[in-house]
Design a protein around this nucleic acid. Sequence first.
DNA 1: TGCTCACTTGTTTTT
DNA 2: CAAGTGAGCA
Length: 764
Amino acid sequence: MEKYLEELNESQQKAVVYLDGPALVIAGAGSGKTRVLTYKIAWLLKQGFAPHRILALTFTNKAAREMKERIAGIVGEETARRLWMGTFHSIFSRILRREAERLGFTSNFTIYDATDSKNLIKSIIKEMQLDDKVYRPGMIQSRISNAKNALITYKAYEQNKQLIEDDLRNKIPLVRDIYARYQNRCQQAGAMDFDDLLLQTNLLFRDHPDVLGKYRDYFQYVLVDEYQDTNFAQHLIVKRLCEGRGNLCVVGDDAQSIYSFRGANIDNILQFKQLYPGCQIFKLERNYRSTQNIVNAANSLIRKNTAQIPKQVYSEKEEGSKLQVLSSYSDYEEAYAVAARVHEMRRQMPYADMAVLYRTNAQSRILEEAMRKRNIPYRVYGGLSFYQRKEVKDVISYFRLVINPHDEEAFKRVINYPTRGIGDTTVSKLVSAATTYGVSLWTVLQSLSDYAVPVNAGTAKKLAAFRELIDSFRERNQELPADEIATAIVKESGIVALLAQDHSTEGIGKFENLQELLKGIAEFCQIRQEEGNTQVSLGDFLAEVSLLTDQDQEGDENTDKVTLMTVHAAKGLEFGAVFVVGLEEELFPSAMSKDNPRAIEEERRLFYVAITRAERHCTLSFARSRFKNGQTTMCIPSRFLRDIDLKYLETEDGYRRPEADSSVSERKPESRPAFTSPLQQAQMRETPSAGPRKLTRMTAAPVSSAAEQDFSDFQIGMRVRHGRFGEGVILSFDGDGNNRKALIEFDNSGQKQLFLKFARLEKM
DNA sequence: TGCTCACTTGTTTTT
DNA sequence: CAAGTGAGCA
């Protein structure tokens, strides 16, 4: 162990060996946070803590898995396996299954994912005959989710004046009733949503002091990773488990808090000190990942935020190259420019050391296309996870129904898949009977006559057949291991036959996914058996898989591929070279956050996360136009580009950004970009005339306010000259007003579609 | 009941 | 551009 301690710097060491009370480790980007956590756990084991009495909570399954591996490397796999290590959601779902009866659930409860929740909300809105334009399901879902994260049950919601008034003001007074119905339906179905896993844990601990006492005594030391991303419910769980004893160590970086949309509360880390008196703070400020230029650029950016824990992150690596700013005409060109640079970079490092990061998943397509055309191998992370694909989820729904027949969402998904002549009308009848009698759909199905379901004989027969199908699976599930019952289910339900007859490309893909799923189950069984479990049931598999939204399928990790992912997904990772694309107003920062200073700060932190992923090279790219929602729109370079100190940037060709600090009057005309659009001018006007940087951030860019221009003097067939592409002929027009663009056949550069507004065409 | 086709509409990040 | 919805028809 001493040998391992030597691998740590002084502040890391102090954080590892400190056991005299609550500890807060502020870990700057790339400062060896994971190393501290793993060694701390190893240290605890060395001090005699039993592995199964250490609780380590992480943010993603992947983080947990990797940390476990690293610990196994130090203390051996046998010991590492006994640790309670995982995400909040997975750890507490385990505890909830054990204690389910206390809460009126059974241990085989289903976990509803976000889609299940949304579907349930949709059907409740429909049943209540509300307008889904007013009661927008997504909005209701996030309201309920926020309430749950703040530990407001539906009963508390009804009594919360503030919330009720809010809803009244927003003309959605019935949210409280939707919430109440939603919760009852979940209970009825024996289901918990993601937020329930935390909420119910809190209720369990609040209402059953003996249970809380049991776990509080059981866990002798608690560690929490990514503490800046915990929400109130998570914070309270931790607090309850550690009450009165200081055996707690939380690690995080307030500058990397990027999950407030999910209820994460940055105050948890900012106020940790006040909440846990006697707590010791450790700061890890030396960055081991990146060159000085990257660290300094990131520092200059994050300095523009207000609330943060003071720290000075520094690097002692070489100065390194400056951050490259890349500007392109369009999203299309951007993707190709990035692909070209990736190709070039290949001379310095393998593809696997490079990543292209973007704000939204939708941006991946065009990048993929560019990579494919250049024959660059890539791997896209995120988007739909394996378990969320329709064909996989349908099969999983059968599994869910077998384990918990009251699962309403699984029932609805599966009852007519493959089609067996039970349509919407019949399902609606079942639902309405279930609602009137307050029972599950499955219960109604058991005795159609008892619940007065008005179906004709033919339909009744089909329903009975479905019931028998599920019953027969349920029976066999008692004895069979997971892989065998799973195979029986996909065969006898008719899914295999259905998918096998579809010979289209995507049909084949679906069939392969099905095989993949079955293979996954078989592997799961095998691993569990090797760990000493005799019989591995379908329920075991399901309990695990419901929380595995992580991207950890295919084993092609070792091949040399460029990584494409969202910035969120990149948190915690590092790459030799990073390309951050789409740095434009309304995209990064997102349009959703433009009027909200707090949200803008979060977007800035997100950008900070993106930059600090880079070890040696970082490229920041934006396009001047982008295809969005079915049409091309013009873009303004992101305000964040102006937040980075110029001396760390290397800008080239057309773009030279306005300097945030210098005043307009001082700027010489020559220092302006050669290529200036009216929009850019509008943006420049907005730069503060004197000192206060704040203005830059607080003034929203007046995008649409730019005056409409008249381009009517350009005609089809006219010969024009363009500054970059030379001479050409106008073939056609598209769009109106400021978005009017012309398709031009250039003599030397081929066809281009250009905004008249930008193009500054000259009539010949 | 179930399928197809035309139409509308909406936009972020994820355990 | 995508997904989701609603009408029309077998």
